[in-house]
């Protein structure tokens, strides 16, 4: 797998895949996608990078420690639940903030989205922690 083709394609693909994973995460509430799928896509992208350039390079590219993603993700998910408590509703009840933009566009911000972002981060963190731990010896 030390091939020039793989490395070149990977360089091309990695940005697209990572962007696509965020896209999958954000559209997940209305179309196939979501935190699990988006997270797995991002993780697969990094896995491809590991195969092409090795774990050290992948680690340099990712910059953050995958273990930190675990903590941040779990915290985000729990925070999404606690916001509902602040509003006086049961833990993890969904709350929305819908902002109308000029034209017919709108932006939906919600605790549900925050929760899904938490799932995304945990999934990415899990896969990368495992991958780097295995490869980084």
């Amino acid at each position: 797998m030390n091939s020039l083709i793989l490395r070149t394609t990977t360089m091309l693909l990695i940005t697209i895949l990572l962007l696509f994973s965020v896209f999958l995460l954000l559209r997940g509430h209305d179309l196939p996608g979501g935190g699990f799928i988006g997270g797995l896509t991002a993780a697969a992208a990094v896995a491809l990078y590991v195969l092409a350039f090795g774990a050290q390079a992948a680690n340099d590219m990712v910059r953050v420690r995958p273990r930190a993603l675990l903590g941040v993700g779990l915290t985000a998910a729990v925070a999404a639940g606690l916001i509902a408590v602040l509003f006086g509703t049961p833990f993890l009840t969904g709350h929305w903030l819908i902002i109308d933009l000029p034209g017919s566009a709108e932006v939906k911000l919600s605790t549900v989205l925050l929760f899904d972002v938490g799932v995304y981060l945990v999934v990415v963190g899990t896969v990368l922690t495992m991958l780097f731990a295995l490869e980084g010896q």
Partner: peptide, 17 residues
């Protein structure tokens, strides 16, 4: 099943390691 697949992934990798 979706969560089962992802959890299954975690379980398998843990077992492998």
């Amino acid at each position: 099943v979706l969560t089962a697949i992802v959890i299954g992934f975690g379980l398998i990798v843990f077992t492998l390691v």
